[in-house]
């Protein structure tokens, strides 16, 4: 499974938009970590939260997480002010494993 994280917007938007998406390959993770990632992806896919920022939010970031797994591809999008706890847990997990 291959997971990529693209980030947009925020206080430093002109800088953030020039940074490439970051990619995580689960082949390089231990088996239990890959299973945990699958569980988090499933939970976030079921309830990602709002795709865009709240109407009055300013400097909020948006996130696009793309999960390629064999023949399936899943794209999840949410924002700082709209994400569900499940999306937040997935985002945090990815950030921690990207190092």
């Amino acid at each position: 499974m291959r997971v990529s994280l693209a980030t947009h917007g925020g206080l430093a938007a002109p800088i953030i938009r020039r940074l490439p998406p970051r990619v995580l390959d689960t082949d390089q993770l231990p088996g239990d970590a890959a299973r945990e990632l699958r569980r988090l992806v499933a939970a976030a896919a079921a309830d990602p939260g709002a795709a865009g920022p709240a109407p009055h939010a300013r400097d909020a970031m948006t996130y696009t997480i793309t999960v390629d797994d064999s023949s399936d591809s899943t794209t999840l999008t949410s924002s700082d002010t709209g994400m569900s706890p499940a999306f937040g847990a997935l985002l945090t997990w990815i950030e921690r494993h990207l190092g």
């Binding site: 925020g10 709240a54 109407p55």
Partner: peptide
């Protein structure tokens, strides 16, 4: 807020 979070924002009511 968050892990290695590169931002600060106003959410309409508070600052993060």
């Amino acid at each position: 807020r968050g892990h290695r979070y590169n931002n600060a924002f106003w959410d309409g009511q508070e600052m993060v």
